[in-house]
């Protein structure tokens, strides 16, 4: 960031101002926006270098993991979070699910002309808090502005880099027949929190998004010594879609027990009301772990000891199946497939 703010520069009006096309022009207005809003909140020694990229210390032994995630959530602010902290948590989690320790983030902003600085400031502050809490700084970024009507307020793309110690790599390809499937907590909280705010459904609910960075929980899980084969965060498409991805990657089948799936009563009720299935609703602070059978109890105990894993549960098992079906024994006593999400989950009619 260059020191452009001299006596003759009028400060950004964060309270009443709005993004205009000049803020994406690459000129003085953009530099001012970066300095007074982004750098002010997100600031750290790397960002302060002010170059086109960040010069970072080489993290040492191990392999690098890189992941990227674009965030286009609507509404931008929802119970339990906003697009800012979500964009930090989402990418940290993607890096962490690879078995890596997340180190750095980049953030790209696409702003819509007319977007209020006040809202942008709230979002950037929330990002900064999330990054600080996670110990993962935003070290470089980019800002673009699109004309009014061509964006939805703000889109944020974050990229994360992490390092994975030799032998600690994880992949969705490593589930083996006999393995045990665990989830770190209740399902569907984020998706239903968003749904309740959106669609002008007009129902009030106590449901709060679970958005959280999970690398701390993963460290605790790793420290337990359990033989973890797969970690994955069941975001869009929910647990059902995530398990189908893993089943296909690993070439296995799975059997879930419906009665053991943790779902909050309020989420269950909202899903019931809208004709949705919590298995397909997004999570932003939950993970699926697949581990060797003898270590399941140890891993479950470790998860439950961490604040983000208090409601962890064993929900099923991996078995051999050439068709890679994810199936479920229903609480009712029957069996059924838990299929990929097809299209968007639409409410049923009657």
């Amino acid at each position: 960031m260059t020191e452009i703010r001299k006596n003759y520069v009028r400060p950004l009006d964060i309270k009443h101002g709005q993004v205009d096309m000049a803020h994406g022009s690459g000129g003085r207005a953009m530099a001012q926006l970066i300095e007074e809003l982004f750098a002010r909140h997100l600031g750290n020694e790397y960002l302060a270098q002010g170059d086109d990229g960040a010069l970072l210390p080489y993290p040492g032994e191990g392999r690098l993991v890189m992941a990227t995630d674009s965030h286009v959530v609507s509404p931008l602010f929802f119970p339990g979070g906003d697009i800012g902290c979500l964009s930090v948590h989402g990418t940290i989690n993607d890096v962490a699910m690879m078995g890596a320790r997340p180190l750095y983030l980049s953030a790209g902003f696409i702003l819509e002309e007319g977007f209020k600085f006040a809202d942008l400031a709230r979002i950037v502050q929330s990002m900064a808090e999330a990054a600080r809490a996670a110990g993962v700084p935003v070290v470089t970024g980019d800002t673009k502005v699109v004309e009014r009507g061509k964006g939805d307020g703000v889109f944020i793309t974050t990229t994360g880099v992490g390092i994975v110690a030799p032998g600690n790599e994880l992949s969705g390809r490593c589930a083996r027949p006999g393995d045990v499937i665990l989830v770190s907590g209740t399902l569907g909280d984020h998706g239903m929190a968003i749904m309740a705010e959106r669609e002008s459904l007009g129902f009030e609910s106590p449901i709060v998004s679970d958005t959280a960075a999970l690398h701390g929980l993963i460290e605790t899980m790793r420290a337990s010594g359990a033989d973890i084969h797969v970690l994955r965060d069941p975001t869009r498409g929910g647990l059902a879609t995530t398990l189908n991805e893993i089943a296909r990657q690993s070439g296995v089948g799975m059997m879930l027990l419906e009665k053991d799936l943790p779902v909050k009563p309020a989420v269950n009720a909202a899903c019931e009301f809208l004709g949705l299935d919590p298995l397909y609703v997004a999570n932003e602070g939950k993970l699926v772990a697949i581990c060797a059978e003898p270590d399941a109890d140890k891993l479950l105990a470790a998860m439950r000891n961490h604040p983000l894993g208090m409601d962890a549960a064993v929900v099923g098992r991996v078995h051999e199946d050439p068709h890679h079906f994810v199936q479920m024994t229903t609480a009712f006593g029957g069996k059924r497939i838990v299929d990929w999400l097809s299209g968007e989950q639409l409410p049923r009619i009657c």
Binding site: F332, G333, G334, R336
Partner: peptide
């Protein structure tokens, strides 16, 4: 139809 399939009623 949906209830029968979703809960696996035919298995019973």
């Amino acid at each position: 139809t949906h209830a029968i399939s979703r809960y696996g009623v035919s298995d019973l």
